[in-house]
Write a protein that binds this DNA or RNA. Sequence first.
DNA 1: AAAACCTTGACACACCTCTGGTAAGGTTGG
DNA 2: CCAACCTTACCAGAGGTGTGTCAAGGTTTT
Lengths: 134, 134
Amino acid sequence: MTTDALTIHESAETTGWSPRMLRYIERSGLVVPARSASGYRLYGAAELQRLRTLKELLQRFDLGLSDVVFALRLGQDAQLRGEVEEWLSAEPAKPDDVAGDDWLSWEQDKHQKLLAAAAAQPATTADPTGGTIG
Amino acid sequence: MTTDALTIHESAETTGWSPRMLRYIERSGLVVPARSASGYRLYGAAELQRLRTLKELLQRFDLGLSDVVFALRLGQDAQLRGEVEEWLSAEPAKPDDVAGDDWLSWEQDKHQKLLAAAAAQPATTADPTGGTIG
DNA sequence: AAAACCTTGACACACCTCTGGTAAGGTTGG
DNA sequence: CCAACCTTACCAGAGGTGTGTCAAGGTTTT
């Protein structure tokens, strides 16, 4: 079976993932290999490349698989993407009335580590047309 | 202090979130209220609206705050967005060699519940220019 | 100055994500 | 037919997310 597709263990060695993770990644929908007639996973060159770049992507930006899964979902569900973008399009944070300077210093329990993602976009068009309050 | 901004407890009641969650949401960077001179959070009409729509967004699409946080990050980090989109742009899954039909039926441990996000995009341009395999 | 707010920090817990195992059973090939 | 693969299913455990609650201490208001 030396066609041009690798089995899961071979692919694992080539890509740096474990076989367990390759199945998990498949389950998450990110890299779904073809199957042989009897159900064996067959990773082709394209899949192997995707697995390698996926690993690098996750490491470089410190992402989780779930992040990429969500991005995939965003790319496939136009309505979801539209609503999320619309929500985000409202001004993200407008430090204006603020008096102090370094409020908000992240929880930092013994559990929590980091997460970071501070906003840093000067409000271009400030039109706080609020809704009905009470 | 009936200016036009609500305190955290008032905002909590109006939006359906708990005060604890309002702080958590602020920490995550999604809705950051202004602060009074002494550090009290002040939620204006815009923030209250955002909190309400956020709640609806999460419920309607079954998202987590972290998903929206990631979307925010995507919107702010062009490089990240570019690389993620590039990764996703490669064909997501090309059932072609597949023989069986309903392989892949989700792990279903007692822990795991669901996650779903099956791909359903007929490959338009199939050009599997693979890389070097071995 | 006491009551009723607010603030941050921390403990706790449930559930999810990510990973590694192990077990029971099908497939492949000598 | 037997070894060496593969498959799914389940147990386990570390660490993140989402949430409540409580403590110690400032602020506002009466």
